[in-house]
């Protein structure tokens, strides 16, 4: 119990004193997870929507695979990305290992199935509603997907935020591919793991509270933005 209190105090101390390292790793956490989110959404939103509107032979199999990939252990993703990006691996020449780019790649792989699956679920309902009209208006697949994504954006936002939450709280994969290098690839979660390892629970917990606060802040910010954009619910 004492330790939790010490953690809260530590979190406030870090924030109030504008701790330079804290800002650096917090900013990097945001930068990595936001980039991963944007890239994952570029793939996952159209793909999930396409799955909802398209009937094809391996559709059920694809959806089942997607749902299984949602539970992919991050450490395994990290290991595979490490082996691919390692100097001795197929993409070693790119020199991407132990850079924020490598961390973004790993997170994209981790959250894309999650966002695609949530997108698929949300879009199925909307497609049932829009189906007749969009077919009647002779829309192309592209137009259908764009219409559904635009009109379903509230539900998709929830999916995207779930993806962001998973990305920013993830430690196993980015530890392996990022290496937790101070001033280069250290982010909130890897710093927490490091401080826990040193037995400095107060600092670790303080960072943990900063992480939670950050996740809440991003959620509130995005929800507020989407609320002011248009009043009322559909």
């Amino acid at each position: 119990m004492n330790e939790i209190w010490a953690g809260i105090v530590e979190a406030f101390r870090l924030i109030i004193t504008l701790d330079r390292d804290l800002f650096e790793i917090t900013l990097r956490s945001l930068q990595v997870s936001m980039s991963a989110l944007v890239i994952a959404c570029i793939f996952a939103l159209p793909f999930g929507t396409w799955l909802a509107i398209r009937r094809f032979r391996f559709r059920r199999l694809t959806i089942a695979t997607l749902n299984a990939l949602m539970g992919l252990p991050p450490v395994v993703v990290g290991l595979i990305v490490y082996l691919l990006l390692s100097r001795s691996g197929p993409f070693g020449v790119l020199g991407l290992l132990f850079t924020p780019t490598a961390m973004i790649i790993a997170q994209v792989i981790i959250i894309t199935p999650l966002i695609a699956s949530l997108t698929h679920q949300a879009m199925r309902e909307l497609w049932a509603e829009y189906h007749d009209l969009l077919i009647s208006l002779n829309t192309t697949s592209r137009q259908r997907i764009l219409t559904l994504i635009w009109d379903g954006r509230r539900a998709l936002l929830t999916g995207a935020l779930a993806g962001f939450g998973r990305a920013i709280g993830e430690v196993g994969a980015i530890m392996i591919v990022g290496g937790n290098i101070d001033h280069a690839t250290r982010v909130l979660t890897t710093a927490i793991a490091l401080e826990t390892g040193k037995g400095d629970f107060a600092l670790a917990l303080g960072l943990g509270f900063v992480l939670i606060a950050l996740a809440l802040l991003v959620n509130f910010a995005i929800h507020t933005l989407s609320r002011t954009e248009q009043e009322g619910t559909w």
Binding site: L126, E129, Y130, D132, L133, S136, N138, T147, D151, G152, W234
Partner: peptide
């Protein structure tokens, strides 16, 4: 054919707009 036709459904479909 489809391009020159319009259809009003029994339960009208309202876009969420």
């Amino acid at each position: 054919v489809r391009r020159t036709q319009s259809y009003v459904f029994q339960r009208p479909v309202m876009l969420r707009r």
